[in-house]
């Protein structure tokens, strides 16, 4: 890897470093180089949202960003959502309201919902549907997810 670059970033509060080709997608870097396989790959063209993480506090797709672009950034992935061994209210609510089945969309869905509630702490049902329309879930029909986000919003306010 003569043309490898070094990428240094903070993930879930921990400073991490790796070397990769410039063409390496951020999601592949997270999964393969940092061993953080909680962020999933569903399409690699920005549609499904499975790879959504927070970059400097804002939700974004990690499949249409290069690892090298995240150099110096602060990332939050699903592995960092729990605090002090406790589930985040969103995680709790997803469990309570059956907001997941196969679990594959769940990490991206949770990160998207987190950003949604930060930008709009009291969303209506329509706003929740619009917000989570950024992520495809094939299992749940979104019903439990909408209920979970409503419940988490109440709790987080």
């Amino acid at each position: 890897m003569a043309d490898a670059v070094t990428v240094r970033l903070t993930v879930n509060g921990v400073e991490r470093e790796g070397r990769c080709e410039p063409r390496k997608l951020l999601v592949d870097f997270l999964r393969e180089d940092l061993g953080l396989t909680g962020t999933h790959v569903g399409c690699e063209h920005g549609i499904c949202g499975a790879c959504t993480i927070l970059i400097d506090g804002e939700a974004a797709r990690s499949c249409i960003m290069l690892a090298v672009q995240a150099d110096g950034a602060e990332l939050l992935t699903i592995e960092g959502l729990m605090r002090d061994g406790k589930l985040h209210p969103l995680q709790e609510a997803f469990r309570e309201h059956h907001g997941l089945q196969c679990g594959f969309c769940t990490p991206g869905m949770l990160m998207t919902a987190l950003d949604l509630l930060r930008t709009n702490p009291s969303p209506t049902e329509a706003e929740i549907r619009e917000g989570i329309s950024a992520v495809l879930c094939r299992c749940t029909g979104y019903h439990g997810i909408v209920r979970a986000v409503e419940a988490a919003a109440r709790k987080m306010r």
Partner: peptide, 9 residues
């Protein structure tokens, strides 16, 4: 334009 996570970037 897309969705919020798209508009982030």
């Amino acid at each position: 334009v897309g969705h919020l996570p798209i508009r982030t970037r």
